[in-house]
């Protein structure tokens, strides 16, 4: 924003400066107001995490609880389990998700013809638009004991049906697969937007120099995507301690037996607090997740800056 402003100011000179920036600022204003109301004012509510909340006294009137709201996250034997699940799933999702998305984006770029492009873009985006509740039933259609597609297939080939919903060992794979299937369309379109922005003369020059398709991708497309990759990965790292609640809660069909493999911090907090209805503890979990996520971003950015200072976000 400041960059644009200074450029505009240089162009317009003294007289045009105030008018142009006034117009720009007034255009920015609704967005800023929205941001302040929606994203900054509610931050004051984080204080609830340190309160023993009393509905009759409200947020400010309630007594202080110190760090009491946080202890349940560490005192349980599940604490290690849920943190491990959240982190490992996220690492796998970030790695595989981005690799898949980049591959698809590069492949989309090789498609010729407007109709083809439109059709494929739409097709890969559809899974992203399906609600996780619906996705959970699609998965159920595959895995159900009585009528599941997979179990029928296994039985046709003489095997015995597998009780997917009672055995945790399968679920890291199932959930990763479902996540990749539902998310790859969206992230590959983000990458695709960058890919089509790469100067086509670079490819022409490369092919004149005798570079084959692989070499073009390796030396032109991937370097061109570097900034986007870094930005998206950094943003994903900020959400390292969060998880897609729909995926982890709905897709296993709330089967308790799977909880060792499918419970993440969000799911654990939801399950633990629906009975107690404890606002303080729920906020404590949320606060902890965002603070840890914030430090993840800072660290990751620090590393990026050490390696290549131009690519760092800040």
């Amino acid at each position: 924003m400041t960059d644009t402003l200074t450029k505009m100011q240089k162009k317009g000179g003294m007289k045009g400066k105030t008018k142009t920036s006034l117009a720009l600022i007034s255009m920015m204003l609704p967005g800023m107001i929205y941001l302040v109301i929606n994203n900054y004012i509610p931050m004051a509510g984080l204080v609830v995490a340190f309160k023993s909340f009393d509905y009759s006294k409200g947020i400010w009137g309630s007594g202080w609880a110190g760090l009491g709201n946080f202890t349940y996250l560490f005192k349980t034997q599940d604490a290690f389990n849920i943190v491990r699940n959240t982190l490992l799933y996220n690492v796998v999702f970030i790695l595989l998700g981005n690799m898949l998305a980049i591959t698809v984006a590069v492949m989309l770029n090789f498609l010729r013809g407007q109709v083809n492009k439109k059709v494929y873009q739409t097709l890969i985006l559809i899974p992203y638009l399906i609600s996780m509740v619906v996705v959970s039933y699609i998965v159920y259609g595959f895995l159900s004991m009585d009528n599941g597609f997979l179990n029928k297939l296994i039985e046709t080939f003489g095997g015995t049906a597998v009780s997917w919903y009672t055995q945790p060992k399968y679920w890291p794979f199932i959930l990763t697969l479902v996540h990749l299937w539902s998310g790859f369309g969206y992230s590959s379109i983000v990458y695709y937007a960058t890919v089509i922005g790469i100067d086509s003369s670079l490819y022409e020059a490369a092919s004149i120099d005798g570079a084959n398709v692989w070499e073009q991708v390796w030396h032109i497309t991937l370097p061109g995507l570097r900034m986007t990759i870094i930005t998206l990965v950094l943003m994903a790292m900020g959400r390292m301690f969060y998880s897609d609640f729909g995926l982890f809660y709905q897709v296993p069909m709330r089967s308790g037996l799977l909880s060792g493999a499918t419970d993440t911090i969000d799911v654990f907090v939801y399950k633990a607090l629906t009975q107690l209805n404890d606002v303080g503890r729920a906020s404590a979990a949320g606060l902890l997740q965002s603070v840890l996520g914030f430090f993840m971003v800072l660290t990751a950015n620090l590393i990026v800056r050490k390696v290549d200072s131009d690519s760092a976000l800040f």
Binding site: Y72, T76, D78, T166, S259, F268, A272
Partner: peptide, 24 residues
């Protein structure tokens, strides 16, 4: 006993329905 209760709730969620339905 809020911390213990939260932890036990999760154990019950894990096994109660599965035992009652006879799946394990």
């Amino acid at each position: 006993v809020a911390n213990q209760y939260t932890a036990c709730c999760n154990v019950m969620d894990k096994y109660y329905a599965a035992l009652m339905c006879g799946t394990v």
